[in-house]
Amino acid sequence: MYQTTYHRASSVDEAASLFGKSSEAKFLAGGQTLLPVMKQRLAGPSDVIDLSKIKDMIGVEAAGDTLTIKAATPHYDVATSDAAKKAIPALAYLASLIGDPAVRYRGTIGGSIANNDPAADYPAALLALGATVKTNKRSIPAEDFFQGLFTTALEDGEIITAVSFPVPAKAGYAKMRHPASRFALTAVFVAQTKSGEIRVAATGASQSGVMRVGAIEAALKANWSPSAIDSVSIPASGLLSDIHGTSEYRANLVKVMAQRAVAAAG
């Protein structure tokens, strides 16, 4: 690791002002992505501003038809939150599948979506549920937030404070784990909103990051059942291909995971 200066912020405003004062600052949440990168000397921020102790940024709350997860809430807290399990059980289940226990105790939803790894779990949920990303400056619909591999709508120094999810009528998640990293080799989140809209998002599959799967949405709109997806054909072109999964395999997984997610949603 290169030399760096550590700051522990106690409020969002303090964090933003610290960021403004340093030359090349990075926010630190769970550190599960940032710290390995720093240890390998692939990043060398002058200052590291820790968000994980900001009280206003931690917690899971359900109010009316909205479930809000504050940005520095660790995955473990989401997985075990009664509010999350009641409002959107598929989302709590998704959090329980992230990495391993050590990663779940430290890693946060804010860090995960800010990083926007093409194989991360949360982006699929945000996209399928039509969530809104709240920052210290504005609200960004999930659709506009994710902009391709490791790229988001966040501006320099902008802090994610929370994510709010409209509670759906039904939702389900199915994940094929990457055998080494435990990220998604391919995973699919399916949701039926209370207004009847059907949204399906796949992560780990596309070369351009998390994506909606229109063909499956259309099939499910006609018939909400796993078998409705049997006849859907997912093209392999544009999908990731690596030592753990060819693009053909991932195309198959998009279908199979979608079927299992629908079955899980009921």
Binding site: D100, P179, A180, S181, I243, H244
Partner: peptide, 13 residues
């Protein structure tokens, strides 16, 4: 080498 870390090399757990 394509598998020089535990993120790519699958150790049994």
């Amino acid at each position: 080498p394509v598998t020089a870390s535990f993120m790519d090399y699958s150790m049994p757990r």
